[in-house]
Amino acid sequence: MKLVEVIRATKVDVEIGKWETGHITRSQFPLSQAKNKNYKFGPDYRWRVVRFRCLGHEWRVLLLLCAPREIFRTTLAVEVGGDLRVVCQHEYHASEPGWHCHLSL
């Protein structure tokens, strides 16, 4: 499966979570290698999770925003056997020249 196919595919059952502040509960974005109940973020950080289905898989996108530091990141992950596998991260932060993407190959 190519990333571009995921981007172009029709998404169904789209659920857009509310903006929250601070720690991200692991159940919202379960990565088995993380040991703690929460992903720790301070009150400067806001986040929300979007869920959808496409190409026969369940997907989640984690949006993370820290306005005081000008950091924005979206993380795309696919559900595999109750765990999430991160596919890519698309982000902007003021310490890098512009928008860029990290791929998990």
């Binding site: 990565l31 290698q33 703690n36 301070g42 530091r69």
Partner: peptide, 11 residues
């Protein structure tokens, strides 16, 4: 950036 601790724990 407020992510170092979370980054280490997530890894």
């Amino acid at each position: 950036d407020g992510q170092t601790i979370g980054y280490l724990e997530a890894a």
